[in-house]
Each structure stands twice: as structure tokens, then as C-alpha cells.
Amino acid sequence: MQSRLKGWPNRVLVTVLYLFLLAPILVVVGISFDSESSMAFPPQGFSLQWYEKLTQNQDFITGFKVSLITAGGVALLALLIGVPVALAIARFEFRGREALSAFFLSPLLVPAIVLGLALLLVLAPLRITGTYAGLIVAHLSITIPYVIRTASMSLLTLNRSCEEAARTLGASAWVTFRKVTLPLIAPGVLAGGVIAFLISFDEAVISLFVVGPRATTLPVEIFHYVETRTDPQIAALSVVLIAISILFVVIIERVMGLKRVLR
């Protein structure tokens, strides 16, 4: 029975499809160590020269810094305004609750290219394109939905009677939130923050419209670089970014794992 359902043709098929899925990443990792700049695969020889060049590329280093600060600011702001909204949606019965919830998720239904242009129209007259303020505002609406979603998930799975117990033991609504609710939803809130950070850090299309000479994010730098030139320096940079992504996944896993320990 088992073997009839999973014969070797099946395995070959799945392996080939996995290869297709992972091919661009594998290739990028491969040529980042290439000794030539011909972008041929398999690589001609091993070297770390592209990583060395990376450390001298001021555009990338500045872009990385801008992206890091922007993503940090976006994550913080999205948490600060998203968690209270999640609280209202998950904890209170009021008219228009469904509509409010749908409204906060709606930015995900607008193509980034459209949102980017729209933001340009608002930010340009204010002269805040190419500033941190402009970039953070631009990334806010696409990250808030994720923060709200993860935070309200945690709130909905939270054992409500823990909060009630705190109330009967003499804690006011605010103290209950600070001492019981917040510690219990912390993993979900943190996960939402990390997701917001990653989305902002990777965002390229909206940023294309709102960056400027004063501040350009890393994905935009990469985009323009690839548009005009192609050499393995981008591959080396990609490998560094992939490593950072993996680091974040490990952090999330640790946090979620921690949550399971606490339960």
C-alpha cells in the first residue's frame, strides 16, 4: 500500500521540483565564491574576492544601514499602533468591528507598484521622499496587517480566565494587561515585529518610488545594480542577506520554542 503510493518516479519528480525551487538560491551561493566574473555556472574556481569587494562598496554599506534603520523603525511603529488595534478587535464587541478588521488587512490587496506611486504623490509635496520618515510611512501600511494578525492570534488563543483571575485578585484592567496579558502574548507580538522587520527590509517596489539621493534602501541599490551590471558581487551580497534571513528564522523558532516551554 505505502510503496504503491510512493514509488520511485514520485521521488524523482519531487526531487526535481525541489531543485527547480531552490535553483536560483543554489546558483547565487555557488557563483558568490567564483574566481571569475563571467557569471558562468559551475564556477571556474574558488575565491572570496567578491566578498572583499562588497566590504568596499559604499553604496551597499549605506543601503544596508538605511534598510536596517528603516526596518527597525517600521517594526517598532507597526507594533506600537498595531497591537492596540489587535486588542480592540480581539477583545471588544462593537459595531463595525468586522469592517475595521477588513480595513486594516486591505493594504495587502493593493499591488505594491500602485501603492508606491500613490505614496510618491503624497510624500513628494511634503519633501520627505528619501528620508527615514518617508520610508517608514511608506512601509507602515504593508506591515501593520501582519502585526495585527499575529497579535490577535495570540490574544484569541490566550486563556481568558487568566486575565479574569488577575482581576479577581485585585489587579486593575491596566495592571492585568501589563502583568498577565502582555507577557502571555509577547511571543506573538515579537513574531509580528520580526515579520514586519523582514518585510520592510526586503521591500523593493514601494521603496523604488520613495527613495532619494539622501537615503536609498539596499533592495533598491541591488535593483539598480542588476539593471545595469551583472557580476558576482551581488551574489556575495545575496548570500550575506540569506544568512541574515536564516538568523531571523532561528530567532523566531527560539521564541516560539520558548513559548511552548512556558505553556
Partner: peptide, 14 residues
């Protein structure tokens, strides 16, 4: 988790 710019670059190489 890998930027689509990076994966697109991978396809250009491939």
C-alpha cells in the same frame, strides 16, 4: 525569506 530581487538575479544567472 530571500528577497525576490536576489532570486530574480539567480534566474538571470541561470
Amino acid at each position: 525569506l530571500t528577497s525576490s530581487v536576489v532570486r530574480t538575479y539567480g534566474w538571470i544567472v541561470l
